[in-house]
């Protein structure tokens, strides 16, 4: 740095020009990199799929459907009173991701369990929505990829998955229509 500073310890004019020019080019480069990076984020048409409406009037207790939100499966399950009782009988403190069924449903709609159909381990779709599918040892969902088992509140009980099936943001727009997202 000694050579950069003049005899009276002032910065030489040439050093100033050098630093200013390189900084200016640096700012320009950063301004170019920004859009080059952001172009890979979801585009406007992908974001436009951000919410979806589901008619739940035809789902009988004990049944579940798979629907799609943001190109990902969503499980909508109408729990039976037995399944609700089984979920509430569990001691929450023993769970890997402690949550009660009430925390995972909307008030007064405890029978409607709406979760993402994406295993929190590595993203496979767990079984258990279709007729006769393996629902695993806890009667909820069972992921065939690596053996994660979820209970009737879709909480992780066994296997490698770290978290309960995620509950998406949703609201009941009427008694029979749910808007997800």
């Amino acid at each position: 740095m000694v050579s950069q500073v003049g005899e009276d310890h002032s910065l030489r004019r040439r050093d100033f020009i050098n630093i200013a020019a390189v900084s200016f080019a640096g700012v320009g480069a950063a301004a170019v990199v920004l859009p080059l990076v952001s172009q890979m984020s979801p585009s406007a048409d992908v974001l436009a799929l951000a919410s979806t409406e589901v008619d739940i009037s035809k789902i009988a207790p004990g049944q579940a459907i798979k629907t799609v939100w943001r190109k990902q499966p969503v499980f909508v399950r109408n729990l039976t009173p037995q399944e609700i009782a089984a979920a509430n009988a569990v001691d929450v403190s023993t769970l890997r991701d402690p949550q009660t069924l009430a925390e995972r449903t909307k008030p007064g709609k405890m029978n409607w369990l709406i979760t993402m159909g994406v295993c929190t381990h590595l993203g496979c779709i767990p079984l258990g929505t279709g007729e006769g599918e393996n629902r695993g040892p806890f009667g909820g969902y069972f992921c065939p990829c690596h053996g994660s088992a979820y209970d009737t509140a879709a909480r992780i009980r066994q296997g490698p998955a770290p978290l309960n099936l995620q509950v998406p943001e949703y609201a009941f727009t009427s008694d029979t229509v749910v808007t997800i997202g």
């Binding site: 080059l36 585009s43 048409d45």
Partner: peptide
Amino acid sequence: EHIMRDVNAGWWL
């Protein structure tokens, strides 16, 4: 047209 309208900074690219 998708690049021009929907993709982030697509019009510029």
